[in-house]
Design a protein around this nucleic acid. Sequence first.
DNA 1: GCCAACGTTGGC
DNA 2: GCCAACGTTGGC
Length: 147
Amino acid sequence: MKSEPEAYSIADLEREGHTHWDGVRNYQARNFMRDDMQVGDMVLFYHSNATPPGVAGIARVARPAYPDHTAWDPSDKHFDAKTDPENPRWMMVDIEHVETLPALVPLEVLRNNVLLEDMPLLQKGQRLSVQPVEERHFREVLRMART
DNA sequence: GCCAACGTTGGC
DNA sequence: GCCAACGTTGGC
């Protein structure tokens, strides 16, 4: 899961303990949350639009997908006038903090690891804020974070 | 259904 | 700030 640290960082998650992942307004990203994320699933917390960008921590899914109420709040940045509360369009999950990595694993370092070359995050043009991670990639990123 | 215009993401 | 990539919108 990606977040711009100026908006919400791993430090924010560590301080709060858990959060709901509101504001996703992309159907593919929503579908991953709604269809594929289960309580207990582990999450790489990625800092996007950062200097440098990279994996900053680990979280865990704490609640399966449910309607994102911010879609109906006209004062919210991600308000969507076309979504009907009777038929929710946008969903979110809750995540809880697991670990703030001792040091960020930069995107550039990830790109230099051949074991990660087919990781979705690193594919050209990909920009989904929620995307799947294979276990082998997850483990490799953690191994890199610990060395 | 096609596609141009526009908006967003996010690395650099 | 620039720009590539991609998604959405809306006219036709």
